[in-house]
């Protein structure tokens, strides 16, 4: 049977992708950002997953004004990096895992989550920047990501967006689905987006480290409390785009419960300001 071996959380700031793609990772502005992920990269090399369910939001790339799915699962064979206006990122095509994705969809839809099935979409920085941060840039002689990825897109762009409670519950249903998959796979679930940032109007540039740290604490030890945060608090305290943090709750819901009832082990935690307009946060939790 497959199992969730760990969950990973990270911001997915597009400027990070640009810095990597344009060879600016060693500059003083960016070096501390990448240094903050080094320990996680080493940890990933030690126990590489067989597949990742990557929770992200599409940024008006695959889903535009015509159609907005609340939750969409990628059941396709592969996903090309999108041209978001600057040209496509020069990173590998993302290989899917259609069998596991179809199994998760089957299980989760029968558990009353009304997923949209997506066989074809281009994936934007929301999905590819986390891969770059945690795997580094794949070398030219072996130009591929280390494992298949199942994209799980959450609408955090057009209101109404799903509640934190709903996101946590979806994560739990995904864990149940993974644990009923016939093949023995080591699966990780990643939650991306956030932390505090506002990308609009005269309040742009808002950063709230107190909120961000409290969120990482609550997410780790009392996820139900984090899930109870209303949308308006995210927007007020963490900025209009801070609402992306609800996606961390999907990954948190997918964490296996420990037999002793304790919180999961925090393998890594990193926080840095600024990355472009955004506070950057990163967690690795293992059972």
């Amino acid at each position: 049977m497959a199992h969730v071996s760990a969950t990973v959380y990270t911001s997915h700031v597009p400027a990070i992708g640009a810095a990597l793609d344009h060879g600016r990772a060693a500059e003083p502005y960016w070096a501390p950002v990448f240094a903050g992920y080094e320990a996680s990269r080493a940890w990933l090399r030690e126990d590489p997953p067989d597949a990742i369910v990557l929770v992200f939001n599409d940024h008006a790339t695959a889903f535009g004004p015509d159609l907005v799915p609340t939750f969409a699962i990628g059941t396709g064979e592969s996903y090309a990096p999108a041209d978001e206006g600057w040209g496509a990122r020069p990173v590998p095509v993302v290989q899917g895992h259609p069998e596991l994705a179809a199994h998760i969809a089957q299980s989760v839809i029968q558990d009353d989550f009304d997923l949209t099935l997506v066989n074809r979409m281009d994936v934007d920085h929301g999905l590819t920047v986390p891969l770059s941060l945690l795997f580094g840039q794949p070398p030219a002689h072996d130009f591929r990501w280390p494992c298949p990825v199942i994209p799980l897109a959450v609408n955090v762009v057009q209101y109404p967006v799903p509640s934190g409670r709903r996101c946590l519950a979806l994560g739990r249903a995904i864990r149940k689905a993974i644990e009923s998959y016939g093949e023995d796979l080591n699966v990780q679930v990643w939650g991306t987006g956030g932390m505090s940032h506002q990308l609009q109007g005269p309040r742009a540039g808002l950063i709230n480290p107190v909120f961000d740290h409290a969120f990482m604490d609550m997410l780790t030890t009392v996820p139900e409390a984090a899930a109870a945060i209303p949308h308006v608090d995210y927007v007020r305290e963490a900025g209009s785009e801070g609402i992306e943090l609800v996606m961390w709750l999907v990954a948190r819901g997918a964490m296996p419960e420990r037999a002793d009832g304790r919180a999961p082990t925090c393998v890594h935690r990193f926080y840095h300001v600024p990355a472009s307009n955004t506070a950057l946060g990163h967690l690795v939790l293992a059972p």
């Binding site: 008006a60 978001e84 206006g85 005269p202 309040r203 742009a204 540039g205 472009s276 307009n277």
Partner: peptide, 23 residues
């Protein structure tokens, strides 16, 4: 903003430049 940022991309300016100008 996630739609509008495609204009910034077309103009060849960064997300930080675009967002900063809104302030």
């Amino acid at each position: 903003v996630y739609f509008l940022v495609k204009i910034a991309a077309t103009d060849g300016i960064s997300v930080q430049q675009m967002v900063g100008r809104m302030t």
